[in-house]
């Protein structure tokens, strides 16, 4: 089992670099689902069990802030932590992300070490060959 991460960004190169950086961060086993924008992300959430959403802010159709707001309206999706990856550097914007319900944020450019630190803060420590989902069965409440 591994952590299942939904990576949301309208840029194929950026989705690719986020996935590559998480893989190389040494965080632990992870599998990935990709979405092009917030709207597509909400559709993907209906199909896959997710442990974390990593999302860009500026995207066409539905941006990262709206995605978080839509997730918070859903009884299941609201429990999924969201990490915002953004070029926004102003303190005002960062506070707005957290206020709306983001679990954390990473400013681009980012290092594997920073990604690992943020994932650990949000999901906890993991071994290389085990995932968050392994331990989560007891906590499931359907």
């Amino acid at each position: 089992m591994s952590v299942n991460i939904l990576v949301v960004d309208d840029s194929i190169p950026m989705r690719s670099v986020i996935i590559r950086t998480i893989k190389s961060s040494g965080f632990g086993a992870a599998s990935f689902v990709e979405a092009n924008n917030g709207k597509e992300a909400l559709d993907k959430m209906k199909d896959d069990w997710l442990d974390l959403v990593v999302t860009d802010y500026n995207m066409p159709e539905m941006d990262g802030m709206t995605l978080i707001q839509e997730m918070k309206k859903d009884s299941i999706f609201k429990e999924i932590p969201v990490l915002v990856v953004t070029t926004e550097g102003s303190q005002e914007k960062i506070e707005e992300f957290i206020e709306k319900g983001a679990s954390g944020y990473i400013k681009k450019p980012f290092t594997p070490e920073l990604i690992r630190q943020k994932l650990t803060e949000i999901l906890g420590e993991m071994e290389e060959d085990e995932g968050f989902s392994d331990d989560s069965d007891d906590d499931l409440d359907f």
């Binding site: 190169p13 500026n58 070029t87 926004e88 550097g89 102003s90 400013k107 681009k108 450019p109």
Partner: peptide, 28 residues
């Protein structure tokens, strides 16, 4: 796509270094 990401990051990072208390809006 990569060049667009590079310039997006470079511009965003420039303004957060320049003044992180100000909001700068970036175009696509």
């Amino acid at each position: 796509g990569t060049l667009k990401e590079v310039i997006n990051m470079a511009a965003g990072n420039t303004f957060s270094i320049y003044d992180s208390n100000e909001v700068f809006n970036l175009s696509i």
